[in-house]
Design a protein around this nucleic acid. Structure first.
Length: 423
RNA sequence: GGAGAGAUGGGUGAGUGGCUUAAACCAACAGUUUGCUAAACUGUCGUACGGGAUUACUGUACCGGGGGUUCGAAUCCCCCUCUCUCCGCCA
């Protein structure tokens, strides 16, 4: 969520920036300002009443101690009136504060200055297009046919065991998954990220912390008996490590990485978009998360983009990098780069990574702060990205590396797979 | 699943209705002293939201969360959550 300081202190900029996301901020800001003024007025009056009550209570104690019971009784009468008024004010304060909060949370994060205007994915800007690859031969098979041909992914068996969107990987298909996870994590740790193995179920507080609740409640699998949620991404446990934390300046930057399976209900998805590995209920992903000082966060974002790009280069996959336009960005992001790999047989780009800077939008909700040079707790910036999501990488590997002899394995993976072809 | 014990500041931990402005110790930070490391001494040492000349200073709230009793609650009552120990089960 945005901070009051941002909303009130940079009114013109907030209106101008949120217009890029197609959000009309002016009336919301008016409401925020009115509520905040009201809240301050109430608090000032309430604080004064409480001060009087505290003083009176202390006085009564002293009177009682000296045995002056009549005077004490008189003082009690005086307090009763104050109490009634403060009780009313207290209720009003809670109401106004709740309204203020619920108004602020409707406002999306401010897009960074370089975010292009636009409403749909059509308006995203291609900032890098890697076209140095050989298109596959005529008659190339889509990955779901290749998966069946070589017996490495069994979608039907997954349906039997669990349901659609829960594939079973077999033989070298399973080994390829394991190899990719290890490869990505090794590359991430070499780049300075500390490996974490978090729980794949989180409690309600964590789901709120990263904003899965209340907005995306229907997207998560919910174990109701224990009120735990299966993580939709490692971002949730990783980022919540720093919920309600004040870091020392020397703790920054934080750079962590984790592999987890990810669980998404994907309610409402259908059609060719969900064919094969394109969209699953359970999939594997390696995530990177950073916590940065505000002045460092955009350099850090560039570093993350370069790092993710290096993974795709190492795998030899044709890719492109998009800077998302205002309309296609998430509610919480200030700047997002999407990575897409080319699906040779489907003839379309598949998103395999999304790297974002949330600035202080996420940390404000999390109460993730660090002690700045002046010693004051200051909201840190958070960033995250996939490095990488496996299923579509596997889809692209199968399709782009298909040969008459089988699926060739990129050289970078040989130390991990210990085989060089799937046949 | 059963039984019991707990939750107090960065940490340990005292505090069973007013003498608490939450003690003391540890850690941290600053200063003094000192050949070095270190030690000793002195001081500082929570968060949030207000008021204020936005300096100083100052008000309120916060002892796991929420409610209640009371002039007054860390302390008493109720509900909830979580943690630990033992037993049972178990990779």
């Amino acid at each position: 969520m945005l901070t009051l300081k941002q909303i009130r202190g940079e009114r013109a900029r907030v209106i101008e920036r949120l217009a890029v996301k197609g959000f009309d901020a002016a009336p919301v800001i008016d409401r925020v300002e009115a509520l905040d003024d009201r809240r301050k007025a109430i608090q000032t009056e309430l604080d004064d009443l409480l001060r009087q009550q505290n003083a009176a209570a202390k006085e009564i104690g002293a009177l009682m101690g000296r045995g002056l019971r009549a005077e004490a009784e008189a003082a009690k009468q005086k307090v009763a009136a104050l109490k009634e008024r403060s009780r009313t004010l207290d209720e009003e304060l809670k109401t106004v504060a709740a309204e203020l909060e619920s108004t602020i949370v409707t406002m999306p994060n401010l897009p960074a200055d370089i975010v292009p205007a636009g409403r749909t994915a059509e308006d995203n800007v291609v900032v890098k297009l890697h076209d140095d690859y050989t298109p596959p031969a005529e008659g190339a098979l889509p990955h779901w046919e290749l998966a069946a041909k070589y017996g490495i992914i069994d979608f039907e068996l997954g349906v039997k065991l669990t349901g659609a969107g829960f594939p079973v990987y077999k033989g070298r298909g399973a080994a390829l998954q394991r190899a990719l996870v290890a490869f990505f994590i090794d590359r991430n740790t070499a780049a300075g990220y500390t490996e974490i193995q978090p729980p794949v179920m989180v409690n309600e507080a964590s789901a709120w912390g990263t904003g899965q609740l209340p907005d995306k409640e229907g997207q998560m699998y919910h174990a109701t008996v224990d009120n735990l949620y299966l993580v939709p991404t490692a971002e949730v446990p990783l980022t919540n490590i720093y919920r309600d934390v004040i870091l020392e300046s020397s703790d920054l930057p934080v750079a962590i990485t984790a592999y987890t399976p990810c669980f998404r209900r994907e309610a409402g998805s259908y059609g060719k978009d969900v064919r094969g590995l394109n969209r699953l209920h359970q999939f594997d992903k390696v995530e990177i998360v950073r916590v940065e000082k505000p002045e460092d966060s955009y350099a850090a974002l560039d570093g993350m983009v370069a790092h993710v790009e290096s993974l795709l280069i190492a795998l030899g996959l044709p890719y492109r990098i998009l800077r998302l336009c205002g309309g296609d960005m998430s509610f919480t992001s200030a700047l997002t780069y999407d990575f897409e790999v080319w699906s040779a047989a489907q003839g379309r780009w598949l998103e395999v990574s999304s790297v974002s800077n949330f600035e202080s939008f996420q940390s404000n909700r999390l109460k993730l702060r660090y002690r700045a040079a002046d010693g004051k707790p200051t909201l840190a910036h958070t960033l995250n990205g996939s490095s990488l999501a496996l299923p579509r990488i596997v889809a692209a590997l199968l399709e782009n590396y298909q040969t008459p002899e089988g699926i060739a394995i990129p050289e970078a993976l040989h130390p991990y797979t210990r085989f060089d072809i799937i046949d």
